[in-house]
Amino acid sequence: MTVPPGSSSTAAGTPHYFGHRERLRDRFRMAGGDSLADYELLELILFRAIPRRDVKPLAKALLVRFGSFAEVVAARPERLKEIEGMSDAAIIEVKIIQQAAKRFAKSSLDKRRSLTSFSAVLDYCRTAMAFLDREEFRILFLDKKNVLIADEVQSVGTVDHAPVYPREVMRRALELNATAMILVHNHPSGDPSPSGPDIQLTQEIVALGKSLNVAVHDHLIIGRDGFASFKGLQLI
């Protein structure tokens, strides 16, 4: 057997990481994911895409670059590509995990049910947006029974700005026959405190919505360190 460059092997000629992979899988099976460190969970994700290499150094390098497991999973593909050893296949495996997490969180926002659970909405928005490195403006469009009609990203911007136009927001609401909405955007800085422009934009959308009988139930700002609710802050 030829050992890949940079890998050590056992006396029998088998790369050392073969046994490590099985031991890690066994720990996951027996004790669950909570028993694993972040880098070990990343190793499990990378195993499928990189079958013939020790991926522990790569997993640790990802954490050093991005800071946490969640931030690795949320990182844009082009940023993951900057890490030596991250192949296209490995990036796909990471992004599958991100999409799975989003869909799991979104399952509580079933279109057949009214969005009466604030915690379910918040959990979904945090999963989808808390660790993004660019600002994203999302709208949850609702019908008169507060049933979710559509969940749409209206714009993606820079690290501190995503362009949003109130008339375009209302035009889309009317196209969907929505009678209410929840506005959501993230602050990549981590601090969810509303800025002056955030407050002004919200007031403009609320005012335009009133003239068209479209209610704005809330505007949530999602950050790594928490969230802010315009309704909770009595800004709506």
Rank of each mutant, 00 (worst) to 15 (best):
E82A: 13
K111G: 10
L132M: 05
K81M: 14
A100V: 14
L142E: 10
V121D: 02
L132S: 11
Q99M: 03
S108D: 10
K95G: 07
R134P: 00
L115M: 12
E82H: 03
T127M: 09
A130G: 06
Q154F: 13
V73S: 04
V153D: 13
L115S: 04
A128F: 05
K106P: 00
I139S: 06
I139T: 07
V156D: 01
A100R: 15
S108A: 14
I96T: 12
R79P: 04
K95V: 06
L122D: 05
V94A: 11
Q99V: 06
V153R: 11
R134C: 06
I83S: 03
I91K: 03
E136S: 09
R138E: 13
R138P: 01
R126G: 00
D123K: 10
R126S: 06
I91V: 08
T116I: 03
M86T: 09
E84K: 13
R113N: 12
R76D: 15
S155Y: 08
M129S: 08
K102W: 13
I83Q: 04
Q99N: 09
L132E: 15
S155T: 10
D143L: 11
Q154I: 13
S119K: 10
V156Y: 00
L140Y: 10
I83P: 01
F131S: 12
V121R: 04
K111T: 10
E152K: 04
R138Q: 12
S117T: 01
A120M: 07
I97H: 08
L115I: 00
V73R: 02
E152V: 08
M129R: 08
D123E: 14
T116E: 11
R113I: 07
V73M: 03
V156A: 04
Y124N: 00
Q99L: 06
A128K: 10
Q98E: 12
E82I: 05
V72Y: 05
R112N: 14
A74V: 00
F131C: 12
A100P: 01
I92T: 14
I83N: 01
A100W: 09
F131I: 02
V94S: 09
N146K: 13
V156K: 11
V147E: 15
A130F: 05
G85H: 10
V94E: 08
E82M: 06
E135W: 00
E78I: 05
R113Q: 04
L142F: 02
R138W: 08
Y124K: 00
K81I: 05
R138N: 07
S155F: 07
L80S: 03
V147D: 11
S119V: 07
R138K: 09
D123F: 04
E152Y: 01
E152N: 01
E152G: 02
V72G: 02
K145G: 11
V73D: 02
F104R: 15
D133H: 10
A130I: 01
A128L: 12
E135H: 07
D143H: 09
D123P: 00
I83Y: 01
S107K: 14
D133E: 15
M86L: 15
I97W: 13
R103N: 11
A89P: 01
K102F: 09
D133V: 06
E82T: 15
